[in-house]
Design a binder for these strands. Structure first.
Lengths: 216, 216
DNA sequence: AATTTATTTAACCATTCGGTTAAACTTATC
DNA sequence: GATAAGTTTAACCGAATGGTTAAATAAATT
């Protein structure tokens, strides 16, 4: 069996730390996540963590950069691959839903970041997010020029897409835990046959589409 | 000058504590808010806080109960005062926007609660929230029966309304802080002439309305 | 006025937290 | 294989944290 080189071992250590940190920050927030605990979860000595990454702030920045940077890139790729504005917007939405599905810590981290006024948000990450917003702005402007979309604020649409997906994703399990909820509310749970992705896409498109009814 | 009676003094103390705690929890989350700091902000000895309210958990529960309970009641009242489904839904949305405006700590507290899987959510508060969801379910069902709305999941609509409002409200100031954002994105900021409330209402209504075009 | 009861206070405590240090261990270089 | 560089570790530290306590103060009751 081949021995790990230093670089391999190092990067594996860093990876373990980041994975543990991602989970811890998502579960408990910045203050609630403890460096000792993260090190323990990663199976690594705390001093190793400080040696490899730095202090808690740097650790948090690494995590959030890794998570959001990835998502931003995926959205950009998905949108670029699509054609017309409607399809681009659908790709935009579904790539967010996809990212959220693949990355269960994402909603918590984002919601907490928003709740804390992005106090810890590193500049690089802000730029990642901005790039996404720029993409959406382009889609909507193009759609409006082609007479497909109404004249809405891209940022409002972004809030609608992000807010809806994050909120729905995180609150659904909480809601399902409440076994005492009346039938009137629970009834709809089973009826949701199509995926979140399709449902959200449908709603958002309808919301910003011009009214002379497209195909669908 | 009349001296305060015990009850008055007591309740005033409790009020000061709750106000300070609300701000602290909103700013820093559960773990990030420190009992010492809350007591200091309230101008009260820490032991007084423990005597009047209890431990940190009880304090948090009081805060969240006060905030969300109030909002739930306001939504119920506003919806009851409106007539047709469309107007009821508009009242539902605008009372949430109104509550968020009046209560600046609400978005942070809710977002954090959601992010933490409602780990600290007291039962009473869960019931408050459920009552709101029940109201919305009624509106949508009624609207659908009358041929006004499509057959959407009320919970998805709720997520859309709440998510959009909370997200938009909290991220807007963060975005405005980024002076380096390109013109393409910033341009839309000034164009938003109508209020958030109107914009969100318009979008949500369009999203769930049946397509044969209503007035406006 | 005396006594009981409610409320607030300062001082204190055990634990936990983020962070450091100096030494030990590993791997590569000569 | 000795030396240097990179990496991990156990042990430690001071500050901060949630929570308690016994005493002081204010108000209500007799």
């Amino acid at each position: 069996m081949k021995k790990d080189t230093i670089a391999e071992k190092s990067s594996k250590t860093v990876e373990k730390i980041l994975t543990a940190a991602r989970a811890a920050f998502a579960e408990n927030g910045y203050s609630g996540a403890h460096v000792d605990d993260i090190a323990r979860r990663a199976g690594v000595n705390k001093a190793t963590l400080y040696y490899q990454i730095g202090d808690k702030d740097a650790l948090y920045a690494s995590v959030i950069h890794q998570v959001l940077g990835n998502v931003a890139r995926q959205i950009a790729d998905a949108v670029a691959a699509a054609g017309a504005p409607r399809e681009k917007l659908a790709a935009y939405i579904s790539s967010i839903v996809f990212a959220v599905d693949k990355n269960p810590e994402l909603p918590s981290i984002m919601l907490r970041e928003v709740a804390s006024d992005a106090a810890h948000l590193p500049r690089v990450v802000a730029e990642d997010i901005a790039s996404v917003l720029i993409i959406l702005t382009g889609i909507i402007e193009d759609g409006r020029k082609k007479g497909l979309f109404t004249d809405v604020s891209p940022f409002l649409v972004h809030s609608m897409i992000m807010g809806t997906i994050l909120f729905f994703k995180k609150v659904s399990p909480i809601k399902d835990r409440q076994s005492w909820l009346p039938h009137a509310v629970k009834r709809y749970d089973k009826k949701l046959k199509s995926s979140t992705e399709e449902e959200v896409t449908k709603l958002v498109l309808k919301a910003i589409q011009k009214e002379f009814g497209g195909k669908r």
